[in-house]
Write a protein that binds this DNA or RNA. Sequence first.
DNA 1: AACGCTAATCTAAACGTTTCGATCGTGTCA
DNA 2: TGACACGATCGAAACGTTTAGATTAGCGTT
Lengths: 339, 339
Amino acid sequence: MLHVAEAARVSVATVSALINGTATVSPELSLRIEQAIRDIGYKRNAIARSLKMGTTRTIGLTVPHITNPFFTDVVSVIQQAFDRAGYAVMLCCTDEDLNTQDEQIRLLLDRMVDGLIVARVGGGGILKGIVDDANVPVVLLDRVCEGVDTDTVVLDNQRAVFDAITYLINLGHRRIGYITGSFDISPMHDRMAGYREALHAAGLPVENDLVRFGNFHEVDGYNATMQLLSQHDRPSAIFSANNPMVIGTMKAIRDIGLSCPEDVSVACFDDFPWSDVFQPQLTTVAQPVQAIGEQAANLLLDRLAGNRDAPPRKLTLKGRLMIRNSCRPLGAIAQTASV
Amino acid sequence: MLHVAEAARVSVATVSALINGTATVSPELSLRIEQAIRDIGYKRNAIARSLKMGTTRTIGLTVPHITNPFFTDVVSVIQQAFDRAGYAVMLCCTDEDLNTQDEQIRLLLDRMVDGLIVARVGGGGILKGIVDDANVPVVLLDRVCEGVDTDTVVLDNQRAVFDAITYLINLGHRRIGYITGSFDISPMHDRMAGYREALHAAGLPVENDLVRFGNFHEVDGYNATMQLLSQHDRPSAIFSANNPMVIGTMKAIRDIGLSCPEDVSVACFDDFPWSDVFQPQLTTVAQPVQAIGEQAANLLLDRLAGNRDAPPRKLTLKGRLMIRNSCRPLGAIAQTASV
DNA sequence: AACGCTAATCTAAACGTTTCGATCGTGTCA
DNA sequence: TGACACGATCGAAACGTTTAGATTAGCGTT
């Protein structure tokens, strides 16, 4: 900028005024300055600007896994929204690990991001402190956090799973296996509640033998399914509360010599673009990824636009059961409803 | 930092020296300073540091689509690598659009990223100028760029497709449809060359009717496949040069009332985690995503470590044909090789 | 006792912006 | 004609660091 000012024989203040339109500068000088900018190929240094202005026009976004199509879709939508608003996005993967998450958040804060969207992992961590400091606005995505009072976008997980399990029950299933991730994160907790609620509503018992834990990876789904299917009285249906794990479930069913949906019905959380066309076509709970991403972006953009003191807003969106052919009717019902 | 210095009754220079270990500071002052840092909860401002140091320890990464699992996987690996090295990653999606890409790159450069990894789109743009300026190191990923001479990691696309098409030919297929993206980007060009080469090697003609263009989206694959299959002499096999389009291909096959592999064999580029278990199990060309990501990261990290003047390094990796059951033997061969 | 050496610490300039307040013509009005 | 307002421009401080070079104190040598 100094060089531009010299070349145009004006002060840096005038150059800045012209660039930002913060003061009127005469047509004559404007011309000279613009010429100098072109000649020199000047580009404003955003770092210096950030330092002075105290804002980076950058937000931080952390997700547990970037290879999970659900997060990918949401990230994509958020990206586009902030892109339109002239913000850059720093994306971090926390790998479902609390320490990593804390580290990433610290990194982002050090870099003076203007806001944070967090699909958090685990319980605790530095998140609460950051939200309470209220210095940078935080939006929680997909996963709420007890004691952390800030803008939030979540799914009505309990209801979504309730619907899915009820669907299975209506098909005649009585022993329904359930594969969950750690209850540390709210969706897993709420989804489990949906499972229980549906069973209760149908007068069915919640059997510990039918619930298995996994850590969000394909291999965990595989192991959990193996355990479920090795039981003497194996479940006739399995619901996977998390999408990467369902691949493992399908592999386990195959490896054990069974097939879906003939021997075992399967449904899971999160939809896939290919679910419609490959067999079995998975029955899934589809999340409104577009809406989730947009709402999260809007909440944060609103805070960034200056609306700092509004009370925390909690948005709850509805999932949608996508019925396909991976669940088969059982018993008497099979006669009439078979595909 | 000023506050810390005052609280510890030392100069800011001493605080800086302690934090960075750039000079020895007495145990006594160290103690006082550390105490003050804790009391105040001081965090070094990375922006101010960047301004002074001329380095942000942040790199820019642009990909055409973040929802494409191939890029997702690669991004994930790159992320981890830079994470380990203490760098942050700014991820941008260019949406397969040259203008967007130029804008994103400018944005990243304004923010003083230390390096750039680009899975570029289209031809031309500002990329060449940036590489030639040699101010910030650039690594090209997945897609080379004529006239842009810099570090590159690509697949041997021609060979990979040659192998896949040859496999189809060996199964007895003679009319093989081919769905490609725009030749603006090198992989599409090279993959097409592999298609031609394989046909030539087998003494088969390259028929224009069998080649269709799409723009990397599912719907493009759908339309292209519809056209291919509506021909009077329809192909017995279809190869999709790009992974999102293959979903469209499968949908078109279904919608037109045919099935895979009975009526039409299908193979495509890029592997999926679910290919192993859903039917038909797609025969694919798997890219070594882990290696691609790691190599790209290493190339850039090496430049960032100071190795600036080494001549551009071009890495070419090999794809691997994953044979599953989406392609069926045709004619005489069918007798012996049928699954 | 004067000197030099070393280690510890500090002062102040710099990085590239933005912005407040000052300055300087110029034209208007009483 | 003098006072005044106004528009255009500028000088300089500030943002929070790093760092070169200055300063100081302590200590062993001669």
